[in-house]
């Protein structure tokens, strides 16, 4: 029987979706407001860490496997580097922001000097934000989960 008291559990399960949607909001609005892939990912990972501490690591491990987290993280990283490589394919160089100015999805350029901009701007930046966000969520939560689980199975090895 691990985890914390009932009150903490209830409040955690109420706040967890809020934290998650807020983290995703921060990720999606990285190019308009402070934030971005890394910050939003850290927020969501912190929310997962909150679930870990209030419900106990056994409960979490029975739902999330660290192998799956590792694969998710790999996927995020691959997406990121592929976006960069697409810059080499469409534009001319690695890491070229090939979407900007195309007026397609994400390709709109805001008027200079104003704050009136939509989520629909920024070229590949929002996509990269999501890739990095996925990676950071999986990575940071993976670290905390593995360490927490290892700290409880003390003395199992040897």
């Amino acid at each position: 029987m691990s985890g914390m008291s009932k009150i903490v559990k209830t409040i955690s399960s109420i706040t967890f979706p809020l934290i998650t949607i807020y983290g995703l909001y921060v990720i999606a609005h990285g190019h308009l407001t402070p934030g971005g892939g890394f910050q939003g990912g850290a927020i969501v990972a912190s929310g997962c860490a909150m679930m870990l501490v209030s419900y106990g690591s056994i409960w979490i491990v029975s739902r999330v496997k660290e192998k799956n987290l590792s694969i998710l993280e790999s996927l995020g990283a691959v997406c990121f580097i592929l976006l960069a490589l697409l810059g080499l394919g469409f534009g001319a160089v690695f890491f070229n922001n090939f979407l900007v100015g195309t007026n397609s999805l994400f390709g709109v350029v805001p008027a200079a000097g104003s704050g009136l901009a939509d989520i629909n701007t920024g070229g590949v930046i929002p996509l990269m934000n999501f890739a990095v966000g996925l990676k950071v969520i999986a990575g940071l939560f993976g670290i905390v989960l593995v360490m927490a689980h290892a700290s409880r199975t003390k003395g199992e090895k040897k």
């Binding site: 590792s70 694969i71 790999s74 996927l75 691959v78 960069a84 490589l85 080499l88 160089v93 690695f94």
Partner: peptide
């Protein structure tokens, strides 16, 4: 022309794909 970027990108991509 692109080799300086690819020299770093190829092992990185390989490393990201290896767990898969």
């Amino acid at each position: 022309q692109h080799s300086p970027a690819l020299i770093v990108a190829v092992p990185l991509l390989g490393a990201f794909i290896t767990p898969l």
